[in-house]
């Protein structure tokens, strides 16, 4: 475990010391804020809880984008610069590398989520919002982020180019986003299975402040599966 934390700490420090992390967060915050202002706040006579729901809706998309950009460098950069050799030649297990990298990105993504807090706080100041709704929504955002980062970690493990890693991750996330469209044209047993894969269906209850165990389980399961896949990729590439 201490090895995982060691790798995560180094990685987090790398996010802090380089510009790219801040730039990603700043841009995402800016666009998220714009959307909040333009869509969530727009219209008249909305309930505060509706505004908050809309906020979570838009933020989930930007959390996903933010995770995509944050995760693309995780393993691809190590492969590119040759530092993966350092980890390979050290007494570190492959899952520890993946877990350390993933946790650091999750930590940095948490900073992004923390920075979005001003928007619901504004809603709170001018309206009435339950604390539970806020908590549930942010829990949902964290789960979306955790899933996207795991997909990104897997994408990043596949290639040495960060751009290709981002594209691969983007495609995988897109598939997870629109697979309910595919579900509509499939037959009965497949329909449920494919619908069940779409992340938004599992996120929607969080928007309204509901936490269901089965939806939490979905995010945890996909996250775990992606990280497991990334570990296997690292393991297989060790011999190349």
């Amino acid at each position: 475990m201490s090895t995982v934390l060691l790798i995560a700490r180094r990685e987090l420090a790398a996010y802090m010391r380089t510009m790219s992390g801040y730039v990603i967060i700043a841009v995402m915050l800016f666009v998220d804020g714009l959307c909040f202002n333009a869509f969530a706040m727009a219209g008249t006579a909305k309930k505060s809880s509706e505004v908050l729901g809309d906020f979570f809706f838009y933020s989930s998309g930007f959390t996903m984008l933010c995770a995509l950009f944050l995760s693309m460098r995780l393993l691809a950069e190590e492969r590119q610069t040759g530092t993966l050799q350092l980890l390979y030649s050290s007494p570190v297990r492959d899952w520890q590398i993946v877990a350390g990298k993933y946790l650091s990105a999750l930590g940095f993504l948490a900073i992004f989520l923390f920075c979005t807090l001003y928007m619901p706080l504004l809603v709170m100041a001018y309206g009435k919002v339950s604390f539970g709704h806020l908590l549930a929504g942010y829990f949902g955002l964290l789960l979306v982020g955790s899933l996207s980062l795991a997909v990104g970690t897997f994408g990043s493990a596949l290639t040495r180019s960060q751009v290709i890693a981002a594209v691969l991750t983007g495609v995988m996330l897109l598939v997870l986003t629109v697979c309910w469209l595919l579900a509509r044209v499939t037959d009965r047993p497949l329909t449920e299975a494919i619908t069940g894969l779409a992340w938004y269906i599992h996120f929607k209850p969080f928007e309204q402040g509901l936490v269901h165990l089965r939806h939490v389980a979905y995010f945890v399961l996909v996250t775990w599966a992606c990280l497991f896949a990334a570990t296997r990729v690292l393991e297989a590439r060790r011999w190349r």
């Binding site: 180094r10 790398a14 010391r17 610069t81 040759g82 530092t83 050799q85 350092l86 030649s89």
Partner: peptide, 15 residues
């Protein structure tokens, strides 16, 4: 028990 220097030194530039 092994110390390895690959053909390209594995350095993290920002550290």
């Amino acid at each position: 028990r092994i110390g390895f220097l690959p053909d390209v030194p594995p350095l993290y530039d920002e550290m």
